[in-house]
């Protein structure tokens, strides 16, 4: 073992993100290197700091590798944020990840100064999970307090006529239970670890599993560490992080999400999928979020409208595969 890397992240060591994604990826890198690379995973922020500091920790070389939610540092990864938008991300994490891969070099790489990206990904999309609120139309949501996932998620909630509330994820179950919030935009995959099925009655998504936007994630290495690696070691990382892997990560998160919704329906919850006709008003209501985002990020060398157009095209193309 000539090269040891510390990979730092915020979830527990039994979280599927570690067991199903990070560990297999690390193992693949180690094997590709013929055992010369060793990746030590430090879960639960054990190397110190708060989750929003992860990006800076990688940039500063406090740790070598991180897995983090881009949205923890809002505004820091403006280009990649395009994949968080409702109607851009639709219903297929694999297609979204492949689209991210295909546009990375030309359109997203500038977001990651000081970082060498291993891979980017999304989850299966924000579902609407509510305590008692059955939602089939926008009227049902009027004024309801919903927990936000990211800043784009906050815009979605506002666009749907509900009230965004920010709170740390661990606060969510008691807040749902006591009615501090009526619900949350959060993927199904979070149901088992937080036991959300006990505090909610409804899991709601749109026609053909279309979701209310998404969250983007990254696994990145400190740039200097990367630049100092010999070519064959770099290749070991590259081979473990190719286009296939980005797609595969989509399948992994889809599986976690399916497992989560099964958990909820087994517990007797209602999994509501809106009909095509019911879905349309929601899509119409969320369209301005895309415009708001374009307005927010456009400037300098970022063309928000072009990013949206390209991302939509690539998502469609990769879905057709």
């Amino acid at each position: 073992e000539d090269y040891t890397f510390r990979l730092h992240h915020m979830l527990g060591q039994q979280a599927p993100a570690q067991t199903k994604m990070l560990e297999p990826w690390a193992k693949a890198v180690e094997e590709n290197s013929g055992g010369r690379v060793k990746i030590e995973i430090f879960p639960s922020m054990t190397l110190g700091g708060r989750p929003p500091e992860l990006v800076q920790q990688a940039r500063d070389g406090i740790v070598d590798l991180i897995w983090t939610v881009n949205g923890y540092t809002p505004g820091l990864f403006p280009r990649t944020e395009v994949m968080e938008l409702p109607t851009v991300y639709r219903n297929d994490p694999k297609a979204a990840n492949l689209a991210l891969y295909d546009m990375f070099e030309d359109d997203l790489a500038q977001d990651y100064a000081g970082l060498e990206v291993m891979f980017l990904h999304v989850h299966a999309g924000q579902g609407l999970q509510t305590a008692d609120l059955d939602v089939t139309s926008l009227d049902d949501l009027a004024g309801a307090k919903l927990r936000i996932p990211t800043r784009t998620g906050a815009w979605v909630i506002e666009a749907l006529g509900a009230t965004p509330v920010a709170m740390p994820v661990p606060e969510l179950p008691p807040a749902l239970q006591k009615g501090v919030v009526a619900g949350a935009l959060i993927p199904w995959e979070i149901i088992p670890p937080l036991k959300i099925q006990d505090q909610t009655k409804y899991q709601i998504e749109m026609y053909e599993r279309e979701r209310f936007g998404n969250t983007t994630f990254q696994v990145s290495m400190n740039q200097a560490r990367w630049d100092g690696l010999p070519e064959d070691i770099q290749q070991a990382f590259r081979d473990a992080s190719g286009r296939d892997w980005w797609g595969q990560v989509g399948d992994i998160w889809r599986a976690s999400d399916d497992f989560g919704i099964k958990f909820a329906t087994d517990a007797g919850n209602t999994h509501r999928i809106l009909s095509e006709a019911e879905t349309q008003p929601f899509l119409d209501a969320m369209e301005p979020v895309v415009d708001r985002w374009i307005e927010e990020v456009t400037g300098g060398d970022i063309d928000g409208a072009a990013l949206v157009e390209k991302a939509r095209a690539l998502v469609t193309e990769n879905t057709a595969d």
Partner: peptide, 14 residues
Amino acid sequence: IDQKTYAYETSILQ
């Protein structure tokens, strides 16, 4: 300086 360079901001009030 880092916070300024990378434009860190809070989620809701920015």
